[in-house]
């Protein structure tokens, strides 16, 4: 309301130009509305988005489904032989599903196991650290805006920049090893040891995204009514009880948002790792999207069918997760 009134009272140069453009557009488009009727204008408004969505999202998605049942290395669908379930059979031919090395497509299973481990630790770490940081920032502290910005700043950095910053810190002659040697310890091969590489991939991923989730949780904390804490204090609740009895339950909806968002992003991990370890050492940090990328575009002979089959499997897993989460969310809503 306020902005509308301001619009009427005095016109900035921008508003003058804007209004002129609106008048011009109105002059051109009014006949259209006369022709198709006021109600049908909705279709005109929704058309650009739907058209782009259908051409560049929905159609490729259906195509991808078709690709999963074709073979060969040609990108044009009419020149790809239909092979039925062969791609899926390739992926699922394992003697022992708990051991990727016994599978024909061992890289897929290694990537699947790696992704699972990454998702569990990254999302877990993300939620806990973001929550601690949000709680710290929610206290009466000096320079809150400064600290909030510090934690948020890495969110803005691009994946390649983040990867290079940490490669530089963690390389063999880098700052981290310099500090270790200064403290009298030995150098650690952070990027060439598989376990350390996995740890640092998760670490930099949390480092670069936690600011975003911290902000969301902070907003959730600040929306908890103050009277509840006062009531808790009158009832003699200790801080521990206050946290479990008031803060956490009321923060649950926000926590659920954070969980869903970070889970979806974690499953899709790719660009940062691609620039950081490029999946290595060996296959220690090769995740699902990188497997798809490698299989389709780089180094593995343009096996589009196999890559598409892998992405269909990934989409199905994501869908199942989401449905489970939605159900869990609905149930917790019902129980409240």
């Amino acid at each position: 309301m306020e902005s509308k009134q301001r619009l009427k009272i005095h016109h900035t140069p921008f508003e003058t130009v804007y209004n002129a453009v609106v008048d011009a557009l109105d002059f051109v488009l009014r006949p259209l509305q006369k022709r198709i009727g006021q109600r049908n204008m909705a279709y005109v408004f929704v058309l650009p988005n739907v058209a782009i969505f259908v051409i560049f999202v929905l159609f490729p998605m259906l195509m991808n489904f078709y690709y999963a049942f074709t073979g060969g290395s040609n990108i044009f669908p009419d020149q790809r032989p239909f092979v039925g379930l062969q791609n899926f059979e390739t992926i699922f031919s394992c003697t022992d599903y708990t051991n990727p090395n016994t599978c024909r497509e061992d890289l897929f299973w290694k990537a699947a196991f790696n992704t699972f481990g990454f998702v569990v630790f990254q999302v877990g770490g993300m939620v806990v650290i973001s929550l601690i940081t949000a709680l710290a920032l929610n206290r009466k502290i000096r320079a809150r805006a400064f600290f909030r910005s510090v934690f948020f700043y890495p969110v803005l950095l691009s994946p390649v920049v983040v990867a290079l910053i940490w490669r530089w810190v963690l390389q063999n002659d880098g700052l981290m090893n310099g500090v270790l040697v200064g403290l009298g310890a030995d150098r650690v091969p952070f990027l060439t040891n598989p376990d350390w590489a996995r740890f640092w991939v998760i670490f930099i991923s949390v480092w670069s995204q936690m600011g975003f989730y911290t902000l969301i949780l902070l907003a959730g904390l600040q929306s908890i009514p103050h009277e509840l804490y006062e009531a808790g204090e009158i009832d003699g609740a200790n801080p521990w009880q206050t946290f479990w009895g008031i803060t956490l339950p009321l923060l649950m909806p926000t926590m659920l948002v954070v969980l869903v968002l970070s889970l979806i992003r974690a499953v899709q991990v790719f660009d940062q790792v691609y620039a950081f370890t490029n999946g290595g050492p060996g296959t220690a940090t090769t995740y699902m999207i990188q497997y798809i990328y490698l299989t389709a575009f780089a180094g593995r002979g343009n096996q589009y069918g196999l890559a598409a089959a892998a992405s269909v499997i990934l989409a199905v897993v994501l869908l199942v997760f989401t449905l489970l989460q939605l159900r869990a969310g609905r149930q917790s809503e019902l129980s409240v």
Partner: peptide, 12 residues
């Protein structure tokens, strides 16, 4: 489709 990453439909 919010869930489906762009990377999954990369080829088509």
């Amino acid at each position: 489709t919010l869930l489906v990453p762009l990377s999954v439909i990369l080829v088509p």
